[in-house]
Amino acid sequence: MTRILLARHGETDWNRLGRWQGHADPPLNEAGLSQAAELAERLAGDGIAAVYSSDLVRASETARVVADRLGLDVVEDARLREIDVGSWSGLTRAEVEQRFPEGYARWLDGEIGHDGETREELTERVVGAVERIAAAHPENTILVVTHGGAIRALRRHAAGDPGDPIENCGTSSLELVDGVLRVRAA
C-alpha cells in the first residue's frame, strides 16, 4: 500500500478575491506562504518519502516550502494542474454570472459551465498521474501538492463523492492498494 497525502496549495490574491484560477499562474501571497510553512510543520513527522507538485507556481511554491523542511526535492508534473476553466479564468463569480449566465447556472447546478476542460478530462488526467506516481513509491508515503478541483476529482474517483471543498493548505489522504485508489480512513 502506498499512502498519498493530497495538499491544496496556499492562498493567492486571486483566491482572496474569489477569481477563477484554472491554469492561470498567480503566486502565493503572504498568507499562502504562511499556510505553506504551517503545512510543512504539520507534515514534518509523517515520514514522507517524496514530494510531487502541479507545475503551476501556487502549488510548486507550496511544495517547495514543505520539501525544504523535509529535506526533499520537488518533482513537478503538469498532469497535477487544476481544471482548465477556459474563458472564466481570472473572473469573479459575479463577472462569470454577468458574462456567461447559462454556464453559471449550470455550474450552480453542479455541472461544468465553462468552456475549458470537462470533469472527465480532469479526472482522467489527475487520476492517471497519481496512480503512476504512487506505483513508483510502493509502501511509502508521498505528498502531492495540487489544487481543489484536482483533489475533488481524485476523491470522486476513489470514493464516488468529492467531499467538501478543501481549504488552502488543507489535506486529504488516499491510498493505492493493488493498483486501486481509495480514500484512506482517518
Results as ranks from 00 to 15, higher is better:
L43H: 10
S60V: 12
A7T: 05
N15T: 08
S54N: 06
L70K: 08
N15I: 04
G113E: 11
T118D: 01
A135K: 09
A135P: 02
L43P: 12
A150L: 12
D55H: 13
G32K: 02
P101I: 11
A159F: 00
D161I: 00
R58P: 05
H137K: 06
A136K: 04
V144M: 04
L72H: 06
E38S: 10
D84P: 04
L80R: 13
I142H: 02
A78M: 04
G110I: 11
L39I: 07
V96I: 15
R58W: 11
L28C: 01
G90I: 07
A134K: 05
G170W: 03
R69Q: 03
A24V: 02
E95M: 03
R119G: 14
N168P: 00
G32R: 06
A158Y: 10
A50Y: 11
T123L: 08
L28S: 03
I151E: 12
L108C: 15
R69H: 03
G110A: 12
E11S: 14
H137Q: 12
P26I: 01
D46R: 15
Y104N: 10
A78K: 05
L72K: 14
V51Q: 08
A185V: 14
L91D: 06
E38Q: 14
R69N: 00
G10V: 10
N140P: 00
A159T: 05
D25S: 07
D164V: 06
D25G: 10
E167S: 11
S173E: 15
D164Y: 09
T118F: 01
V127A: 06
G179Y: 14
V145R: 02
E124C: 04
R106K: 15
E131M: 14
V183Q: 13
